[in-house]
Write a protein that binds this DNA or RNA. Structure first.
Ligand SMILES: [Mn+2]
Ligand SMILES: [Mn+2]
Ligand SMILES: [Mn+2]
Ligand SMILES: [Mn+2]
Lengths: 219, 219
DNA sequence: ATATTTTATTAGGGTAGTCTAACTTTTTTT
DNA sequence: AAAAAAAGTTAGACTACCCTAATAAAATAT
C-alpha cells in the first residue's frame, strides 16, 4: 500500500501539525524538507505522489495539509513506532535512548495481525518509554495534558511525564542528571538571569538550564 | 551495509546449497532467478554487484558460489528470520503458517543489539516453529539429523521434527490432517502403487500422499 | 510600488532494482 | 560434427527515491 518513504513523509507532516484541526495548520515544502533532512526539490516531487494518492492536499505554490486518510495513516505508523519502542524497552531491556532508531525501522513492518498482537502482549500500554501517548486501533490519541517545565509556574509540584526531544544525546544527559520519567519534583524558582529553573526532588535541590526545562514535560 | 534485496539473494543461494562444502555445489543464474521469482536478466545484474562486494564467486558464463563472507551473512539473516518466527509463534501466538511472511520483513531490521536480546528473551531456542535449526551468534548451525518420511524405512518410529515446505498452504493442510511438530508416529507401510505412506500415531492409522511424506521430516 | 528575499517548482542527472527482447555461449542431442 | 536446446548476458526501458542548479511565484522589506 504505502512505502516506508511515504510513511515517513506522513509522519513528518503530522509532527509539524499539518492538520485541518488540532494542529499548527498547513506546512510548507521547505519546512517539511528540513524536518526530513531531504532537499525541497525532492520533497516537491514526493508531494505530487502523495496528492495523487489522496494523502495530502496542496494547491500549486500552496501549503500542505494532511487529508483524513493521510492523518489516519500517520497515526497508525506512530502507533506502531511507540508500541515497538515499548516492546524494546519493557521486554528486551533497551534503554530509552536506544529504542528510537530501531523503532524507526520496525514501524514500517506490514502485517494486519502484528500490531494488535503486540499491543495485547504488552498489556495495552498507554504511553511509550518517552511518555508519548500510544494511539489506539481506531487512531484515537489521548489529548495532551502536559506542560513543559519551562512554562510551569513557581511552586508547581508534579511528575516528569514526557520529553520533547527524543535524541539519544538529550536522553543520556537526563540519565546523567538523574532525571527520569515519573520523577516527582517541585519548581522552586525561575531564575530571570538566564532562564534556568531551580527545582527540588526527593529533598535534593538542583538547577537545570532553560533548554533542558523546555524539553521536559510535567503533569 | 547490505540492502534487503542483497540479503534475499544471499539467502536464496544458501537455500540452493551454493556452498564450497556441505552443499549441493554451485548454482546457476536461472536456478537462482527461479528461486527468487525474478527474471534471469535481473539476477545477472545483481550478481555483478555481489561479486564486487565479495559475497559470491562466479566466472563469466559460470556457476555461482557463496564466498565465506556471503555464507556468513546469509546465515545471519536466517538466524534473524528464525528467531523472529519463534517470537511471533511463542509470544504473539501466531500460527505456524502465519509467521513466515512477517519474518521475511523482520529479518532485515538492522541493529547490533536486537538479535541477541531477542534470542535471550526467547530463552535461546534451538529450533523455529517449523523445526528448522536456529544458527548461533557465530553462525554455527547444528547438523541435520533428519530424514523425510518418504525415505524412512517401514517400521521406523519417530517424531515429526520438521517440514521441508514452509508455505501456508502446506502447513494448513498439515493442521487439517492433525499432523504437527513433535507428533510420534510409526511408518507401517510404503505403498508401491502410488508411493503413499501408511502410518500409525496414537493408535490411529492414516495414509498420506507421497508429496506430503516428502515434505515431512522425522528423527 | 519596487526591490529583495524567501518559498516553491522545474530541468536534468544518479543509483537501486525490476522488466522484456535480443543475442551469445555452453551443453545436450541427434 | 552439426543442430538444437538451455543457460547466461546485453541492451534498453521503467519506477522509486534522491541530488544540484536554474527558474518562477509569493511574501516581505524598503
Ligand atoms: Mn521514537
Ligand atoms: Mn517515543
Ligand atoms: Mn520462514
Ligand atoms: Mn521457519
Amino acid at each position: 500500500m504505502f512505502t516506508a518513504t511515504e510513511e515517513n513523509y506522513l509522519k513528518a507532516l503530522f509532527r509539524l501539525g499539518a492538520l485541518t484541526e488540532g494542529g499548527k495548520g498547513p506546512a510548507g515544502t521547505n519546512e517539511l524538507a528540513l524536518e526530513l533532512d531531504i532537499r525541497p526539490a525532492t520533497v516537491n516531487g514526493m508531494l505530487k505522489k502523495l496528492r495523487e494518492k489522496g494523502l495530502v492536499e496542496q494547491r500549486r505554490y500552496g501549503k500542505i495539509l494532511l487529508t483524513e486518510a493521510g492523518r489516519l495513516h500517520a497515526v497508525e505508523v506512530i502507533r506502531k513506532h511507540r508500541l515497538w519502542e515499548t516492546f524494546l524497552y519493557e521486554k528486551l531491556h533497551f534503554t530509552w535512548d536506544e529504542v528510537h532508531d530501531v523503532a524507526e525501522q520496525l514501524e514500517h513492518i506490514r502485517s494486519v495481525h502484528l500490531t494488535d498482537r503486540l499491543e495485547e502482549f504488552l498489556g495495552y500500554p498507554s504511553v511509550d518509554p518517552h511518555g508519548d501517548p500510544i494511539p489506539d486501533k481506531e487512531g484515537r490519541m489521548p489529548p495532551e495534558v502536559r506542560r513543559t517545565l519551562a512554562e510551569s509556574e513557581e511552586g508547581h509540584a508534579g511528575r516528569i511525564v514526557g520529553v520533547c526531544d527524543n535524541s539519544a544525546e538529550f536522553l543520556q544527559y537526563l540519565d546523567r542528571l538523574g532525571l527520569s520519567l515519573g520523577l516527582r519534583l517541585t519548581i522552586t524558582r525561575h531564575i530571570p538571569f538566564d532562564g534556568s529553573v531551580e527545582l527540588e526532588s526527593a529533598g535534593i535541590r538542583m538547577i537545570i538550564t532553560r533548554k533542558v526545562a523546555e524539553n521536559l514535560l510535567v503533569d
